[in-house]
């Protein structure tokens, strides 16, 4: 039985700035990291492996340098990593991305039965939280989003029970396998890689599936297969703050000033 984890390599967004003239992201010199939410998905799949004996396959769609991120997954204990990389996959929105990922999962399923697909709740660069549900929809799997705990997996009855974290309440939900779950960062604490595993991962095989292997129709993938397009990226205008008083010399006066200002703007209900 297979657990498939979908991860994405993203630019470290805290270091990304928008070019005000071209309206695109300045990516030069910005390090790439594994999407933080996906680290929880990967960790959860490794825990499922330890608890239930699943195999863990990790897939990622992205440019060739995504290999680095996949090797990190190997160093943490993934059994198999697959890089979905082809110029034809580029420029994809969530529709086209979930298309490729879903097809890859189907292909994996031909070798070994897929029980669970795990995704992070969203990426930090796109922030849509649509790819997981998109994959589930295309594969016809049950989808469980906002999962903060896997309660139980019953392999005989082919059932999974999870806890979903909603606004102010929890939900325990059970569904049949195969299922897609999208996890929250509260679900676990990702492990740290052991050095022997890192050394192993340095030259372990990373399987490449391009579109020759996948054989998908060009109009369903990449830019052409995307239903949405980003037209412009820009940083929102922010009003400059103002400095009031001198807190380091006279904190009492500064505090008074601050309270008065806040009252003026109706921000304090005093």
């Amino acid at each position: 039985m297979l657990v498939v984890t979908c991860i994405k390599q993203v630019p470290d967004t805290t270091q990304v700035k928008v070019d005000p003239i071209t309206g695109t992201l300045i990516r030069e010199g910005v390090p790439f990291i594994i999407n933080p939410f996906d680290t929880y998905a990967l960790e959860e799949s490794l825990r499922l492996k330890e608890k239930y004996g699943f195999h863990v396959a990790v897939i990622s769609m992205g440019p060739p340098n995504t290999e680095v991120t996949l090797r990190k997954a190997l160093s943490l204990g993934a059994d198999e990593v697959i890089l979905l990389s082809d110029r034809a996959f580029g420029g994809a929105d969530t529709l086209a991305t979930s298309m490729v990922l879903a097809e890859a999962i189907k292909k994996l399923g031909q070798k070994e039965e897929v029980a669970i697909v795990i995704c992070g709740r969203q990426t930090i660069d796109g922030d849509t939280a649509q790819v997981g549900p998109g994959i589930a929809t295309r594969l016809g799997y049950s989808q469980l989003t906002l999962v903060d705990r896997i309660e139980n997996v019953d392999l005989k009855a082919k059932k999974i029970r999870v806890r979903r974290r909603l606004e102010g309440r929890h939900e325990i939900v059970e569904t049949t396998l195969p299922a897609m779950i999208a996890v929250l960062r509260e679900i676990n604490r990702p492990r740290y890689p052991k050095v022997p595993m890192r050394l192993f991962a340095q030259d372990a095989p990373v399987t490449l599936w391009n579109n020759k292997v996948m054989g998908l129709r060009e109009d369903t993938i990449g830019l052409k297969g995307s239903a949405t397009q980003v037209r412009k990226i820009f940083s929102p205008q922010r009003e400059r703050g103002e400095i009031i008083g001198d807190g380091s010399k006279n904190p009492q006066v500064a505090a008074r000033l601050l309270i008065d200002r806040l009252k003026e703007k109706n921000l304090l209900s005093l």
Binding site: D12, Q15, Y192, V195
Partner: peptide, 28 residues
């Protein structure tokens, strides 16, 4: 750390910060 990855929780984030941003706080 190296053979068992058995470290106190607070060090996990620290190690990540050092690896990704070469400083203990993970500041850019």
């Amino acid at each position: 750390v190296e053979m068992n990855a058995r470290v106190p929780d607070e060090l996990l984030a620290l190690f990540e910060n050092f690896e990704q941003r070469s400083n203990p706080w993970g500041i850019i």
